[in-house]
């Protein structure tokens, strides 16, 4: 008995440490913002846009650091330049949108890498590439909290319009909504979520935070609000497990978080009632067996 409680105490040791608790809180905030946005992104079919935004922020972050302005602003500026620029190119030539986006965001990432190499070396930028929940500086933390609250409030206030825009932009335009403004709004929200996710999992894995929870929740729910809640819950589970495991086993927190998210998706894919593979196969088998029974009679 005492050995069990000792094991538990050891397992929950990270929660007694200030810096671990802080990492956990930041992870939960970042995770919630990404989960809520991921639902809209998955439904809109913007997964690649999320990936592009995450790579396009790099030069902005370096330039913001050089200019001494808040990192979030630099990141937002550079990602918007990339996405709006790609949109403009796309309208004026016949190359497919995904290819244009591919050129634009790799171009921005390359620019970021060149800038990192030219600027006197600073470990700071490694955090962008790999992410580090455990090492977020106080000034960055403040920016993340403000950004997170802003994004969640805007989604809550504009929920209905954003849902309509993702579902049927043509109808949104016909009933008098400004769809161009809604597109810009969703792009800005997506970029802000990207900047937040960078801190947790780094450039390479951001897209997982912005896609996986939404997909998992899509398989489990039939309403957008419920989808956002399930997506958030799945992310909280991943962040909590990620922080705990990475403390005990000494691996990258971001990697563990994304790995658990992928595992949860796989579970939903197999076992989700209604849309899961097992459920569908079983329903098919029951139907076929009923057909055969009917044919024998």
């Amino acid at each position: 008995m005492s050995s069990l409680s000792e094991t538990l105490a050891l397992f929950f040791l990270p929660l007694t440490l200030d810096f671990m608790r802080q990492a956990l809180w930041m992870g939960l905030l970042v995770g919630t913002v990404c989960a809520v946005l991921s639902c809209l992104i998955v439904l809109k079919g913007w997964s690649l846009v999320g990936d592009a935004a995450s790579h396009a922020v790099v030069p902005g972050i370096v330039l913001a650091w050089l200019a001494g302005i808040p990192m979030v602003i630099g990141a937002l500026g550079s990602a918007l330049c990339c996405l709006l620029g790609a949109g403009m190119i796309e309208r004026h030539c016949r190359i497919r949108p995904d290819a244009v986006l591919g050129i634009a965001f790799t171009g921005f990432l390359a620019l970021g890498m060149v800038l990192v190499a030219m600027v006197p070396s600073d470990v700071h930028f490694m955090h962008i590439l790999l992410g580090n929940l455990l090492g977020i500086e106080a000034s960055t933390r403040y920016q993340l909290i403000v950004t997170g609250i802003v994004v969640l409030s805007v989604v809550a206030l504009k929920f209905s319009d954003l849902r309509l825009y993702c579902f049927d932009p043509q109808h949104a335009q016909v009933v008098g909504l400004d769809t161009q403004r809604l597109q810009l709004l969703l792009t800005v929200l997506l970029t802000l979520a990207t900047v937040m996710a960078l801190q947790a999992v780094g450039v390479v894995l951001v897209v997982a935070m912005l896609v996986t929870p939404g997909c998992t929740a899509f398989l489990l729910t039939r309403r957008l609000a419920a989808m956002m809640m399930v997506a958030s819950a799945s992310t909280w589970l991943s962040v909590f497990a990620g922080v705990m495991v990475s403390f005990h086993v000494d691996v990258e927190t971001g990697g563990v978080i994304v790995l658990i998210q992928a595992f949860l998706f796989l579970l939903a894919f197999l076992l989700a009632p209604g849309r899961g593979v097992v459920f569908q196969k079983r329903r098919l088998w029951h139907a076929i067996r009923a057909d055969r029974a009917a044919a024998r009679e």
Binding site: R163, H171, V175, F218, T221, R222, R223, L224, M227
Partner: peptide, 12 residues
């Protein structure tokens, strides 16, 4: 496949 109900769509 969009997660909205019939009433949600009519309300749009």
């Amino acid at each position: 496949q969009f997660p909205v109900s019939v009433r949600d769509v009519v309300m749009m």
